[in-house]
Design a protein around this nucleic acid. Structure first.
Length: 428
RNA sequence: GGGGAGAUAGUUUAGGGGCAGAACACUGGAUUGUGGCUCCAGUAACCCGGGUUCGAUUCCCGGUCUUCCCUCCA
């Protein structure tokens, strides 16, 4: 952050001033992308409505401590990815890096435990993480979030997964669900300890990369693709062996429900997620086809159960909850790859053309009448000549053009042109 | 955060130490009141800073941004 104040030199031949650009990892979403966004919003709205989810709109800024406590101080997100600052009043705040902590906060803050449980909420909001950007990875990205709070019934785990999967499917994106169960944080801890012990015993067989993984994040070894690892991984302890009976039962039920609902999933005993609040079920949504120009295989979404979060943030003990987050930009990448992007072009069955000042004036009123009566009419009032207007009518795939010129204004008539046949007639 | 690749009109790109070329798009015209095809014309670019050089958009260094891998995640 050492931006030196630019010394104003005597300008040589007046060079254009450097144009301002978006910040790294941030971007504009322009009109030609809106059709996809609107389709996504529509799909989210009808899906959540069907499943009885109410929308929540969250503040972009939260107290930093919400994420430190909720997501976990040791996580990558909190440790190095948050946009955090102190405001004029000395309050430490953070642009939310994810939505679940905020929703849990809202659940507690608004006494939602007095509503029929589970309380089901959804949101579609931008999230902020200071990461190195690349395709499908931005510093501001949008997430569709689904959260069901106040119940630990495994049917909700299944429903959340079902919804996340169905959401993508409706948008023409086939996904695979990777699923696992983590048990409690204590279970995870003892598992990681044993896992580390196991791999340390085989450290000579590990590649350089994997040795680094062993030091930094042993769980990552489990999806290492280095040579010879398959064998080693097969002998590694699996977290499922560490689960208590209740968690096992819960997990089995989730899987049964998914089978019943015909959601395809892959049991991945090595799936772990980077947020501390997860307990029991965790899952990840991966596009069935590679997305992006280089065929990268980014995950479209993920989530899981977080039974400990609400108590941790000061809510009532034993308030179970489960949720999912889906990355909108990544879904759009997947839609592009699948060729299911909706058409963005403005079309209009009828197009209104005007010629000359008098016609333009009268036309404004006529156009407004059409619009108010619900007829979808295209226009290009900024164009003066008829040729340009008909060109636009053609691009809008209009079948009828209404032409109002000087003469027609005087006669109180209008020309109706059939765009396909090219025939026209004068109408009063 | 570590490593690799790249950056030329709005977009896709050609080129290359000495006037930067095209296509699409856009604007106008051929028809001064008629679209879809065609033809003509116009607007429009070498990321920023330094170095080497008579001369740098081109070569070198640094920065910025994009992208890929690692890490991590949506």
């Amino acid at each position: 952050m050492s931006v030196k104040p630019k010394v104003e030199t005597v300008a040589k031949p007046a060079k254009k001033s450097k144009s301002l650009e978006t910040l790294r990892g941030f971007r504009d979403i322009l009109p030609d992308e809106q059709a996809s966004w609107e389709k996504i919003e529509d799909t989210a709205r009808s899906l959540t409505r069907a499943y009885g989810f109410g929308r929540i709109r969250l503040p972009a800024l939260e107290a930093t401590s919400l994420f430190e406590r909720g997501v976990g101080k040791e996580t990558d997100i909190v440790e190095k990815e948050m946009f955090t600052f102190v405001d004029q009043g000395g309050v430490k705040m953070t642009l939310r890096p994810e939505g679940t902590a905020s929703v849990a906060r809202a659940y507690i803050e608004h006494g939602m435990l007095n509503q029929p449980q589970p309380v089901k909420l959804w949101y579609m909001e931008p999230m902020f993480r200071h990461e190195r950007p690349q395709a499908g990875r931005y510093r501001q990205h949008w997430q569709l979030g689904l959260e069901a709070m106040g119940s630990d019934d495994s049917v909700l785990d299944a429903q959340i997964i079902l919804m996340a999967h169905g959401f993508c499917k409706e948008l023409g994106v086939d996904t695979m669900v990777n699923i696992n169960s983590l048990g409690t944080p204590a279970v995870r801890k003892s598992y990681v300890a044993d896992l580390t012990k196991y791999f340390k015993g085989h450290v000579k067989k590990l590649s350089e990369t994997d040795v680094r993984r062993l030091q930094r994040n042993p769980l990552r070894l489990l999806d290492s693709k280095e040579e010879g690892m398959e064998e080693l991984k097969a002998g590694a302890p699996q977290i499922i062996e560490y689960l208590d009976d209740e968690t096992k039962q819960h997990f089995m039920k989730v899987l049964e429900y998914l089978d019943e609902a015909e959601v395809p999933y892959t049991l991945n005993p090595f799936l772990v997620r980077g947020l501390d609040y997860y307990t029991k079920t965790v899952f990840e949504l991966v596009s069935a086809n590679p997305i992006g120009e280089n065929g990268s295989q980014l995950s479209l979404g993920g989530g899981g159960r977080y039974d400990g979060l609400i108590p941790l943030l000061g809510g009532r003990e034993a308030t179970g909850a489960v949720g999912a987050g889906i990355g909108i930009e990544r879904v759009i990448l997947a839609m592009k790859a699948a060729g299911t992007m909706p058409d963005n072009k403005r079309t209009a069955d009828v197009f209104f053309c005007q010629l000359g000042e008098a016609a333009r004036r009268k036309g404004l009123k006529i156009f407004e009448k059409f619009r108010q009566s619900g007829v979808d009419v295209g226009e290009a009032f900024a164009k003066g000549n008829l040729k340009a207007q008909l060109e636009i009518a053609d691009k809008m795939k209009s079948t009828i053009a209404i032409i109002l010129g000087q003469k027609e204004v005087l006669d109180g008539t209008v020309i109706i042109r059939d765009m396909e046949a090219g025939a026209q007639e004068i109408v009063d």
